[in-house]
Design a binder for these strands. Structure first.
Lengths: 208, 208
DNA sequence: CCCTTATTGTGAAAAATATAACATTATGAT
DNA sequence: ATCATAATGTTATATTTTTCACAATAAGGG
């Protein structure tokens, strides 16, 4: 199923919202319930569903349980996803300790750092020397890496890990990386996010 | 100047790319140089510039220094931007220690946490009790907050800080917050970013 | 059993965004 | 001084995305 990044982000939000609705005791929902919960319109919800051949019952809405199964299957959440974190600095270490991924079925299999003093094979998420990453990726069949190395090292690391089998990179280094053939790079750029916020806050202040 | 979020993100990227070009010794550039550096087309660069009344010289391109001044002014980088971080957990603490903001003219004025054991008034970024946030925001004129509290607390905190004068929130809690009147919320959702990557990597694998 | 109502599913319209095309103009060579 | 060239700036075109509108239809009441 081919579609846009935004659409898939919405699917994730639908999934999360449905879990919340389910926790509140709901069993079924209508497109406008979900739309409200996620902050889109009902038409968008139904359109997104139709792209993936998801159908409900006229006048009856959708079953939460069925929908969650479908969304989880689409999003690959019906199996454990193993990822590695590269760079055990402030951000990388925080991600390795963050509990939020577990409950989403995402397991950080290991961290890697070039600095030998950071290596710790016995921590909950073992931190290994960068030299071992190639072998680790291959032997564990890891497809996804989170990159929190200094920007100067980022491109080199991407090229190495992509050659070792990584297909997707979540990049925290504040620069745009050239993505090797067959490798998807999503960027999380906190500086730019803040700049953006600052810009729009300033604009709001001025036009007020 | 009213425009889209994507356009402003591109301005940030232009700025970053121009600094890199400048560091390499360049003094001027053409729209296609910058386009290559940022990963867009030359037409987009010129279009974005024209939206902000930025002009260059036919056949001569643009002066990096002049451009940087303009971009920095548009993005509010001609003055120090003070922000607060709310929530001193793993992610919040990492952000407070992260050096990347400083060089972008963004200063984390303080962190806040509801847990008294996290309070530390003498650390480089002082961590203060959450009760003090209202006064701090007002007395320091803070407009921007980074929110790294547990999702269950996020909406309440947003409502409080918005009432105290916060106009922009960078939210790390993995749920969509209702933005109070006059308050902009940008979301950084790491779980969703990873899910997204996982989806597209899977799609790629299948269609291969 | 029919009629009203509420909701889906989709096709068409509108809006937003990105791309391309090209007329304009400054530069430098002849 | 004129001409060819190279790059801008903007208008036009195409594409993508969102929104709207409504026909189809299942459920429930009378």
């Amino acid at each position: 199923m081919i579609t846009t990044k935004n659409c898939i982000i919405r699917l994730s939000r639908y999934k999360n919202a449905l879990y919340r609705l389910q926790a509140l005791g709901f069993v079924k929902f209508f497109s406008d319930n979900l739309a409200d919960a996620v902050g889109v319109t009902a038409a968008v919800v139904r359109k997104d569903f139709s792209v993936f051949g998801i159908s409900g019952n006229k006048k009856g809405g959708y079953q939460i349980e069925t929908l969650l199964e479908k969304l989880n299957s689409i999003l690959g959440k019906d199996r454990l996803q193993k990822v590695v974190v590269i760079g055990a600095g402030h951000i990388g270490s925080a991600l390795m300790r963050y509990r939020g991924f577990e409950k989403e079925g995402i397991k950080i299999a290991a961290g890697f750092d070039i600095d030998p003093s950071k290596v710790n094979r016995s921590s909950p998420v073992p931190i290994l020397p960068l030299e071992e990453i190639k072998g680790f990726i291959k032997s564990h069949g890891i497809k996804i890496a989170v990159l929190t190395v200094p920007d100067i090292a980022a491109q080199e690391v991407v090229d190495i890990i992509s050659a070792s089998g990584i297909k997707g990179v979540l990049n925290f280094a504040p620069l745009r990386l050239k993505s090797p053939e067959g490798c998807i790079i999503n960027n999380v750029n906190l500086e730019i996010e803040l700049e953006n916020l600052i810009y729009f806050v300033n604009v709001m202040e001025k036009t007020k």
